[in-house]
């Protein structure tokens, strides 16, 4: 994805003007450091949640599908251990994916556009070190957002033994929430849905960082993840393991 962005922007004759296109795309031409930010931002709307839904669904339901869940559960291991280690594995998948995007994007951006001190959204400029720090923070925030999707997929996979069903259900829920967020009629639920905070990370690129929306996002993410994990646990601790 980051490579695609770099190629497209480098080869395209009509470069996006500042303020045009998805966040940070226009800024890339002047500064390669924005490639990982633009890439992860663009991915966080669909592809990353898809990866997260799959990563969250497969560890648990996949074992059930292969029949190996009963092999594990016949061992002296607690059910909580199994459930939460599967959650951990799902996070690991997503972290590795995000790291690839981030590092790949940074390298590609550096090679093609060069890396310079960042111009923040507020107009001031910060150094490369501080800029990289913001990029890492942005990635962390997006990861925490993805925890919601991972936990959602984990929750669905405690209800079904089909990993595909779990992944697709989680993805459908994610997409439905995203679409609902687009209608003003559903504005009342917007503050409570984790999908409406996708762009919170852009506030990290203001100077100084505008924390208020980020705090709101973190609060909603935290409540969502905790709730989903709690429900998953309640179901899984009493679940009949048949396969």
């Amino acid at each position: 994805m980051p490579l695609l962005i770099v190629l497209a922007l480098d080869l395209s004759s009509s470069k996006p003007a500042p303020g045009e296109g998805p966040p940070f795309f226009a800024a890339i031409i002047n500064n390669g450091i924005f490639v990982p930010v633009a890439a992860i931002g663009a991915l966080s709307f669909f592809l990353l949640p898809l990866v997260a839904a799959m990563a969250g669904a497969f560890p648990l339901a996949g074992e059930a599908e292969m029949g190996t869940m009963k092999t594990w559960m016949s061992r002296p291991v607690g059910r909580a251990g199994v459930l939460f280690s599967k959650w951990g594995v799902a996070i690991l998948y997503v972290v590795v994916g995000m790291a690839l995007v981030g590092i790949g994007g940074l390298l590609a951006g550096w090679l093609v556009f060069g890396i310079h001190p960042l111009a923040t959204l507020s107009g001031t400029t910060i150094g490369i070190g501080a800029g990289l720090e913001r990029i890492v923070l942005a990635n962390l925030l997006i990861l925490i957002a993805l925890l919601c999707t991972i936990s959602l997929a984990l929750f669905v996979s405690t209800l079904t033994d089909s990993s595909l069903t779990a992944a697709i259900s989680a993805m459908v829920l994610f997409v439905v929430l995203t679409i609902l967020n687009g209608f003003s009629y559903f504005d009342f639920m917007k503050p409570y849905t984790f999908t409406s905070y996708n762009l919170a990370f852009t506030n990290l690129f203001r100077e100084p960082i505008y924390w208020q929306p980020i705090r709101n996002a973190l609060l909603v993410y935290g409540v969502t993840v905790a709730g989903l994990l709690a429900v998953s646990w309640l179901i899984f601790r009493r679940k009949d393991i048949l396969t």
Binding site: G67, K70, W72, S74, P76, V77
Partner: peptide, 27 residues
């Protein structure tokens, strides 16, 4: 110890690796 119905293992791993992996869970 034992199994229910058909013993299930990871087909893409060797027997030894399966035992190592499963045996390490709580033992």
């Amino acid at each position: 110890g034992g199994f229910v119905e058909v013993p299930a293992f990871y087909p893409n791993m060797s027997a030894r690796r399966n035992l190592r992996l499963i045996g390490s869970a709580g033992g």
